[in-house]
Write a protein that binds this DNA or RNA. Structure first.
Lengths: 246, 246
DNA sequence: TGGTCGCTTTGATCCATGTCAATACGATAA
DNA sequence: TTATCGTATTGACATGGATCAAAGCGACCA
């Protein structure tokens, strides 16, 4: 067995997931002891790489595992029989995908990589088993699900009560905040999704999204160049949010 | 002691919750053994009665317990600083309230009784503990949360892609289905919420809801009399759903 | 190097739903 | 019975965003 110091790099490390992962606080492993982390590692052994546009899973696929995004960027969407579809979320490093499948043993949405990506595979039966042993893990998992519920509530609010520019402002601020909490610039980032996907997520048409971007640029809130966004006046965007007509 | 056949009524029954509850399949107790049910009963001892318009909890309240609706009818809603609010759901017998609070230890929405109601109080720490012992309970709980996520996805779809009449048709069919699965008539029911609350839930103004009701009545899909609804042609309503313009 | 293709921007017009306002209805209480 | 109040319906009009259409821009590939 190789000699181990604080954060040893060994053969095991290549496989070891959670104990070495930089996404602790976002993921399931927060607050676990070393021993508990080790157990989680054995569970989360497998990784899976996906090319841009590749499906992680599809609606109807049998549910077996959750996925933690390691690198890359995903969207989830639902497709109705009549052809309408809606993007229900965008997921980045540290976020968990697949929880929609627990209730019915079948995934209810599609998860697609928007760029080359990698996920940790978390076989669900094993996660349940381990979370019966490790209280902290159990609670972390419950928190993750609950936060997802709260996120959805926020999106309902957005879809139900906000006008187009408010929605886009909320979207940009949310992206900025999530990039920030991953150590990237709060003010400058690259959107991985198209205007159409943003529109679908926000309940708007792509033209409306494009116009709102242009408007924000005119107002000096942001600089847009295709998918590259620079936020120049985040307070300006925030003001848009609480300051609706009636 | 009164004579009873299959399900005996004893002193214990008054307190016993889950083991005697008619809402098994909707709630957390499905598939539990007698012994496991008994344990769950000790946990779910307390009940709480609410008068119409009374809050079960409010956004900002510390999170301590989940609540299973025994009788009555609730809404959950969120209130933004600027005064806008949105109803995020309506809950009826057998449904679980409060899961929004797990992630932050604080409730993020308000839960209000729309008629005199009663809930089972499920202290969350104890639920987690017991679900470490009882695998089936653990899995049931995960299923409940997951189904809530899927419900939210459906609502996003509704809010993001459907037009007013489709939304109301979907709402009525959903109500009908939920009343049905509780043993009530699929075709005739009493709405507990106002047009404004329906509108808020569906992302519409109350006038639009009212007009859609009137339209459905003209078309012969339903008979409306204030809050009393009779569905005359549920296929007609269903057709509205998949049959959108583009 | 030019051509194609996907994505984005922008303009002109239309329409579903919001807004504002008046009236009606039904329950409750006096 | 009548008064009151919350809720619901209906009408007239306004408007935000959808729709339709035409360029523009970049990336990739042949």
């Amino acid at each position: 067995m190789p000699n181990k110091s604080a954060v040893p790099i060994t053969l095991a490390t290549v496989k070891a997931a959670c104990s070495q992962c930089s996404l602790h606080e976002l993921c399931l492993s927060e607050g676990l002891t070393k021993e508990e982390l080790a157990k989680l590692d054995t569970l989360v052994g497998a990784r899976r790489k996906l090319k841009r546009q590749q499906n992680l899973y599809r609606a109807g696929d049998p549910f077996e595992a959750l996925y933690a995004v390691r690198t890359g960027f995903f969207k989830t969407d639902i497709l109705l029989e009549d052809g309408r579809d809606q993007v229900t979320g965008f997921q980045m490093a540290g976020e968990i995908l697949g929880m929609d499948g627990i209730g019915t043993e079948t995934h209810t949405c599609n998860a697609v990589a928007l760029e080359d990506s990698e996920v940790c595979v978390i076989p669900f039966a094993q996660l349940e088993q381990l979370s019966r042993e490790i209280q902290t893990l159990q609670h972390n998992f419950h928190k993750v699900m609950s936060r997802e519920l709260v996120r959805d509530q926020g999106l309902m609010m957005l879809l139900g009560t906000m006008r187009a520019e408010e929605r886009l402002a909320a979207f940009l601020l949310n992206m900025s905040q999530r990039f920030t909490s991953r150590g990237y610039s709060p003010a400058e980032f690259h959107l991985r999704m198209t205007r159409e996907e943003i529109g679908s997520y926000l309940g708007l048409k792509l033209e409306t999204v494009s116009r709102a971007f242009s408007r924000f640029q005119e107002e000096g809130f942001i600089a847009v160049q295709q998918k590259h966004i620079r936020i120049l006046d985040s307070d300006g965007l925030k003001k848009l949010l609480n300051h609706q007509p009636r």
